[in-house]
């Protein structure tokens, strides 16, 4: 599939320090790519260069087939940008904010229709004519995202859009972002929240100290550290059950400890139904199931020697 965003060898130095040092990745249409890293890792600097807001020292950025740099104008139409800050005009209503940016992007012909669509997507139709300053933080964040996607860009860039948001609003924002990929947009999502990257992103680039240290989908990244999943079954009447489960292809080990059968397996989720059938055939009754998978936090720790929130 043709990449909507292709960046290669991005370098940005501030004085002698390289804030971004050779970053490169691609995002296809409909794909959500997460740039996961702690504060100061180089995420915002990277996307500033991708947007053409920051002059890069080295590297190339191609969006929708067009090179992007700080002098690009018309090429920026392919990019939607949601900054980390709540970048709204508080004295204007949500509708006025959207209409202003719609005009700026030349959407005059179908402005009202598109504004209504976006208000619907971000769930603000009922409050569309209230001033943005009267919104809760979560509603402002959703409007912030709405402005970025207003002109239906090929590439939507979201820079940590859930920072400082309460859990309920955060869920609403993540749902909105999850819907973007299905609209066919390529989404670049930066975050230092591991669970957001896991939930939203098709592929993830782990960035630290200005470099992408690993890239892939969640399973591939976890595979890098060689850790397997742990499945714990609470069972009764399990004589001989452990041996049968251990014989399943993909299961590394199965061990009965009291009424708990502890199974170590790679990609346990895909094996779970087979495991349950074997256990049932062995005459055991399953009372509970728990699957523990290694997460990206563990991957990050393994790759960088530090926690994501350091």
């Amino acid at each position: 599939m043709e990449a909507v965003l292709r960046c290669e060898g991005l370098v940005k130095r501030f004085d002698d320090r390289a804030a971004v040092d050779g970053v490169g990745f691609e995002i296809a249409a409909g794909e959500t790519y997460g740039l996961l890293g702690p504060n100061g890792a180089g995420k915002t600097t990277t996307i500033s260069m991708v947007c053409g807001l920051l002059k890069r020292d080295e590297g190339t950025v191609i969006v929708a087939g067009e090179p992007i740099d700080t002098s690009s104008v018309e090429e920026r139409r392919a990019i939607g940008y949601v900054p980390q800050e709540i970048a709204l005009y508080p004295d204007l209503t949500a509708r006025e904010n959207l209409r202003f940016f719609a005009r700026l992007y030349g959407l005059s012909d179908r402005m009202d229709e598109r504004v209504d669509e976006v208000l619907d997507v971000v769930g603000l139709t009922d409050r569309a004519d209230d001033k943005a300053e009267e919104y809760s933080g979560g509603m402002q964040r959703r409007l912030n995202i709405g402005i970025g996607m207003l002109h239906e860009p090929d590439l939507l860039i979201l820079d940590e859009p859930t920072v400082g948001v309460d859990p309920q609003s955060r869920n609403a924002i993540l749902d909105s972002v999850a819907a973007l990929g299905s609209l066919g947009m390529a989404v670049l999502y930066t975050t230092h929240y591991m669970e957001e990257a896991e939930r939203l992103c098709d592929r993830i680039g782990i960035i630290d100290e200005g470099r992408i240290v690993a890239e892939g989908d969640r399973r591939e990244l976890i595979g890098l550290i060689g850790e397997a999943d742990t499945v714990t079954l609470q069972i009764t009447g399990a004589d001989g059950c452990a041996e049968r489960v251990a014989a399943i292809e993909g299961v590394e080990s199965a061990q009965l400890e009291g009424e708990e059968l502890i199974i170590i397996a790679h990609n346990a989720g895909s094996l779970l139904s087979e495991i349950l059938v074997v256990v049932r055939d062995a005459g055991a009754t399953v009372k509970g199931v728990n699957v523990d998978e290694p997460d990206l936090e563990a991957v990050f720790l393994h790759l960088t020697g530090k926690a994501l929130r350091d």
């Binding site: 807001l53 709540i86 970048a87 940016f101 700026l104 030349g106």
Partner: peptide
Amino acid sequence: RMNGTLQRLLMAPVG
């Protein structure tokens, strides 16, 4: 500049 709307303006396809 502080609240990010300037970046939004600069990101728009206008000179």
